[in-house]
Simulated scan of single mutants.
Amino acid sequence: MQRGQVPQGPTVWQKLKMGAMMGAGVGLTIGFIFGSYSILRGGAGSRGALPTLSQYMLSSAATFSFFLAIGSVIRNEGELPAHWEASRLHFTQTALQSRQQGLAAMKARWELEKRRED
């Protein structure tokens, strides 16, 4: 990387592939667990143990891959526009106040409400 360049994040295609790979790994694991449990509990069925287990694993992997790929593309880690960043800072500052500041703000709001009612 040259001096002065800003490092770039992954492209949309790279995010899609990464999410699909992670989903496939999770789906294969979950499919193995639930498929094994199903085979041990109810038997392998007419097709046998290996085809039944592979069907559980592949269907689970496809489902998880699809949803994690979409989720990883939708997720945005880029910088927010200035007006969104300002509103985010405004709302997070109120959540990070001390107890004394929160109590003082609550009392001030109560006073305002009492004045409006009168």
Rank of each mutant, 00 (worst) to 15 (best):
M1K: 05
Q2T: 08
Q5P: 02
Q5E: 10
Q5F: 14
V6H: 05
Q8E: 06
T11K: 07
T11W: 12
V12N: 06
V12Y: 14
W13A: 14
Q14H: 12
K15I: 01
K17H: 09
K17Q: 08
M18K: 13
A20R: 02
G23Q: 01
A24H: 03
A24D: 05
A24T: 15
V26R: 01
L28N: 00
L28W: 00
L28S: 02
I30Y: 13
F32S: 02
I33V: 11
G35A: 02
G35C: 00
G35D: 02
S36K: 02
S38H: 11
I39N: 02
I39E: 03
R41W: 10
G42N: 14
G42H: 14
G42D: 09
G43V: 03
A44S: 05
A44C: 04
G45V: 03
S46K: 06
R47S: 12
G48H: 04
G48A: 08
G48I: 00
A49D: 08
P51D: 08
P51W: 11
T52S: 06
T52K: 00
L53N: 00
L53A: 01
S54G: 01
Q55T: 08
Y56A: 14
Y56W: 14
Y56I: 04
Y56Q: 06
A61C: 03
F64N: 07
F64W: 11
S65F: 01
F66G: 07
F67Q: 02
L68C: 03
A69Y: 00
A69Q: 01
V73P: 04
V73Q: 03
V73K: 04
I74A: 11
E77Q: 09
G78M: 02
E79H: 15
L80E: 15
A82M: 06
H83R: 15
H83V: 11
E85K: 10
A86R: 14
S87K: 14
R88M: 04
R88Y: 15
L89M: 12
H90T: 08
F91L: 14
F91P: 05
F91K: 10
T92M: 15
T92L: 12
T92D: 09
Q93T: 09
Q93G: 13
Q93R: 14
T94D: 06
T94S: 12
T94I: 11
A95R: 07
A95P: 03
L96K: 12
Q97E: 08
Q97L: 04
R99V: 07
R99I: 11
Q100K: 11
Q100T: 07
Q100D: 13
Q100G: 10
Q100W: 06
G102N: 09
L103K: 14
M106S: 08
M106A: 13
K107M: 06
R109C: 15
E111S: 14
E111A: 10
L112G: 12
K114M: 10
K114W: 11
R115G: 00
E117Y: 14
E117L: 06
